[in-house]
């Protein structure tokens, strides 16, 4: 297939020759591995003796290319991270594309390449997939669904649930917040600022594995994607009926993100991340976990940002830089820019 000016046609999804050439020349070329190459209707997978973690996520991001990644890379990171924060080691991935008629094949290839590279980086194998093409206007360029399977050790099973969280536990994050949401907003055509902000989009499974292998003090993990850090912490406070206290000066926020948030009236705590994990750990283990995280390139700016407390159960309170305190609420609806 020559990928110069060619575009996706409805016939790329019709099950016939053209579709098979797309699968063979684009998807299999980049995703090739023994399981996928079998091209069976269902992949047969070996999982060892551990329990299985299974998750799925759909990606409809606009724009499909943004500083720091594209929808292909994101569709691996998102699912890998959902597995990793449940304490699982990602093993297998399914990838389904819904393509809009007219999508340039060159763009599809760039997305497929990024997807393949990220899967390799994360060590997850793409074992099955699907492609559909819809009429122009029936989807926005490309939608991707991925589902992931991972294996979980018995001792890590509690991590996704957080039932061992106690007052005094420490809250750690692996770096700056709000980068993904602001990078995507900056990449939208209607947004006339040029920003240096780059999405943090990354697979966190290796960093998380290093943490779990070096410490048994992890009580809970969650990736603060849509709704941001504020939403994850509020869910946690509600679920545990405990309070959460965070320290504004300790929150890592890049100058670029701070600047856009100041301009538009957003709170970085509400902005999406795609390469961040919030870890709740025992006070004894917190420092050594922080050290382990800082040794990974995705955790260089890791920081302790707060703690679990018995006060104000169900609520997240922020100690601000000026000595005041305020409640941090979950996000309501989409963050909208303020008028003035």
């Amino acid at each position: 297939m020559k990928s110069g000016e060619e575009k996706i046609l409805l016939s790329h999804g019709n099950g016939g020759k053209i579709m098979h050439s797309l699968i063979g020349e684009l998807f299999l070329r980049h995703f090739s591995n023994p399981i996928l190459n079998e091209q069976t209707d269902a992949a047969i997978l070996a999982t060892g003796g551990d329990e299985i973690a299974f998750t799925t996520d759909s990606f409809v991001i606009d724009p499909i290319f943004f500083p720091g990644g594209n929808i292909g890379k994101l569709s691996v990171c998102g699912t890998v991270n959902d597995l990793a924060v449940a304490g699982a080691s990602p093993l297998y991935l399914s990838v389904s594309f819904i393509l809009e008629e007219g999508l340039p094949i060159k763009e599809l290839e760039a997305i497929v390449v990024a997807l393949a590279e990220e899967a390799k980086e994360a060590g997850i194998t793409i074992v099955t997939g699907d492609t559909k093409v819809v009429h122009k206007g029936k989807c926005d360029k490309i939608f991707i669904n991925t589902a992931g399977i991972g294996s979980v050790r018995k001792e890590d099973r509690h991590i996704g649930k957080g039932q061992h969280i106690r007052p005094g536990d420490i809250i750690i994050i692996n770096g700056t917040i709000g980068d993904h949401g602001m990078a995507v907003m900056g990449a939208r055509e209607s947004f006339h600022f040029k920003t240096s902000v780059i999405s943090d989009c990354a697979s966190l499974n290796h960093l998380i594995r290093e943490v779990l292998d070096n410490s048994n003090g992890v009580k809970f993990m969650r990736d603060p994607t849509r709704g941001g850090v504020a939403t994850v912490l509020n869910e946690l406070a509600e679920k545990t009926c405990l309070g959460i206290e965070i320290d504004e000066p300790a929150l890592p926020v890049s100058p670029g993100v701070t600047a856009i948030c100041e301009l538009l009236g957003f709170d970085p705590l509400h902005i999406a991340n795609e390469g961040k994990v919030i870890i709740v750990a025992t006070p004894e283990a917190a420092e050594s976990i922080l050290e382990t995280m800082k040794r990974n390139k995705l955790g260089l700016h890791s920081a302790i940002i707060g703690r679990v407390v018995t006060d104000h159960p169900g609520k997240v309170v922020l100690n601000n830089e000026t000595g005041g305190r305020r409640i941090v609420d979950s996000l309501t609806g989409d963050p909208l820019p303020r008028i003035c």
Binding site: N320, G324, R325, R326
Partner: peptide, 9 residues
Amino acid sequence: IHRFGLPAL
């Protein structure tokens, strides 16, 4: 005023 907790000051 509220974000920075000024009434308390």
